[in-house]
Design a protein around this nucleic acid. Structure first.
Lengths: 218, 218, 218, 218
DNA sequence: CATGAATGAGAGTTCATTCAT
DNA sequence: GATGAATGAACTCTCATTCAT
């Protein structure tokens, strides 16, 4: 019997991980097929049966591992997380110059966005449809913003950034700016050369924080 | 017997405008009902019959005026355009100070976004689903960006803004930043006080353009 | 929500044959039910749901096996083919006398037309509505006509038939004549006794070909 | 409220002829438009509103003159009758030779069929759908057949035709043969040159009746 | 665990016909 | 008479989900 998706009554316990190697293979095939189908058809157009067909398994097998399209989408999303994290740049680069760090962060973000553009568009789409996914995404973004806000506060305390700025809002605004530009360029195909994009965004960050000016402490 | 869809060839470009006052009343009732239903149920959940029911007309009457949900959504969107346009601020305010103009523009935009928040969320959603709507929206945004880019260029030429910035990309980035913050605050309910939001965004604009510094001409 | 028709691109050529015995049973039940419903209600009045109801399956199951009413009609038609073929009369009868062969062919054709009269009327009807079905039918008829033309040519070469006749057109005309009489008598209920009908048609064939006269070779 | 066509409860009295010149003009426009639309779209696809649109009148005006699609089709058909009648050939030609008369009859029939091919196809189609129309047509055909049968009987009595033939059945079969060939050639586009077609059909008539042989009276 | 056919609620869409203006 | 908007019954088709094998 058909059921309207979205009437999220209770959070159902996630399916247990498959015990047998065969089960694991099937599950993996489904997730990979799902990514293919989602990227090809979009979230709404993708049908469960398309996914099982693509995976080469029977329609019913889907329900051995997932309860819904939302759930397998989460699984696909989870598999792409790592690529989009920018962790510990300072440590990795052994650098402290904020200009260098900002450039590295923006550059890495934009490149990985470009690499996964089709999927990022999907995330955007699903976030507009699925409340739960949107919330997960919002929280993930908030953590990222808090990290940036901490950096800004540190720079302000060191007299190297405009002390008038609200660090959290500024971090939010500037991070959002980069995210939206990535969307414009790599999803909507706004024609902007990559280097010019990175340079301009870097410069706006630097200018906005007034990195290169002297500031008295707050 | 219901006719096979698609058998009737040509794409009938937009229904003709109603010829009688009665027709006009019905059409208006449908658009108003559509807005109500879309805001209440979201785009995907909204059913044509909900709209006709809300408008108090027969189901079939919908097709006298519109071909699809997409089409009536466009009509709803068109009806909200004016409210979101900020034209000729300089003339209206009789002001020339960029700081004042930026404050006025951001303030007006954020306020009207707040007023139409439910609908703005819908626009975001539909843009992720309907290619045509997305394209209409992209173009509308591009025009807005070009206006801002022209302002930036003028300031650069007058030696009042950072001549290093690419005016178009900067305008794109900074406008996008405001749009995304509006979405975060008024749709995702990020808890940021309005005044602090406006002030911070203004300041980022000002800093990014380096409005308060002296510049030699490019 | 029902999907907009046509959005799913490719024309899926004919559903795959059922893989399970249960599927085969369902498909057969549908074709049999379709024949019943078509004969009872006519082609235009027959509704898909009547067919599934008659077959005792769910409405949706129809689409597991067929795409449309046209398609299941084709399946019904295919199932009646054999009954209407008169192959290899000469071999079957061990006869060579053209008068005997013509009598046998006309007699068999008229009898099987009578047996399937309801369906033959349907064929006539659908051929007037569905271009594809008409074309299939035209081709099938053309093959039959060519066989008869070959026989006429052979008789002409043997000096046993009027050498002036165009074999192909004559075959076409005389075969069509029998077909149309079958339609008049068994569908339109023209009151003509069967034996008198066969005899007269045989005689027209024989006279038309001038079978019983001597001919010099062409 | 929509009504399923075909539930012919009672023969409704034909609409009175329009009294005013304006009414006459509208009625004529509708019949002409109907012919255009029927020929263009076929009977089933033609919608009442297409006809009124083509005629340049309001949808409702249709019902001032006709009750249904069937009815206006009858009106269109009536307007084409004369062209398809072959009356009084003998008198017109001042001829008595049956070969000449047969040639003239076949030739005239085939030419006028060709002239009105689109419409003849329509008649064929509607006859398969509308019982009443089919009956009207059958009767008209029967009268024609009786005329031919009378001619055959006269020839038999004069010892100029095969006395063994059943005149009515033979007339029916031979007339039907010509009609079906006309359909094959001018509707189904069977590629047969016109002269060869006429000649062959004439010859089959002549041979079938054994016109050129001596017969003893029955 | 895998299979794949069966299910069926429910949305979209058409268009002949009516009737107030 | 003419107009043209409104009506609404009726039909098709989809696809997530189940479950017997």
């Amino acid at each position: 019997m058909a059921k309207k998706a979205g009437s999220r009554a209770a959070v159902e316990a996630a399916r247990p991980a498959p015990r047998s190697p065969r089960g694991l293979r099937t599950r993996t095939a489904l997730v990979e097929a799902a990514r293919t189908v989602f990227e090809r058809d979009g979230y709404l157009e993708a049908r469960i049966t398309d996914i099982t067909k693509e995976a080469g398994v029977a329609a019913g097998s889907f329900y051995t591992y997932f309860d819904s399209k939302e759930e397998i989408f989460e699984a696909v999303a989870a598999a792409v997380q790592e690529d989009m994290l920018h962790p510990r740049l300072r440590e990795r680069l052994g650098e402290d110059d904020p200009l260098v760090l900002i450039d590295a962060a923006n550059r890495e973000y934009l490149l990985s966005y470009k690499r996964n553009a089709r999927l990022m568009a999907l995330f955007e789409q699903v976030a507009q449809i699925d409340d739960e996914f949107r919330e997960v995404r919002r929280k993930r973004g908030a953590a990222f913003v808090r990290r940036n806000a901490k950096m800004i506060r540190r720079l302000q305390d060191a007299g190297r950034a405009d002390p008038e700025l609200d660090p959290l809002i500024a971090a939010h605004a500037l991070s959002g700016m980069v995210g939206r530009m990535a969307y414009s360029v790599f999803v909507l195909n706004e024609r902007i050369p990559f280097e010019r994009l990175v340079t301009t965004l870097n410069q706006i960050w630097a200018n906005a924080l007034e990195l290169d000016r002297q500031h008295t402490s707050r």
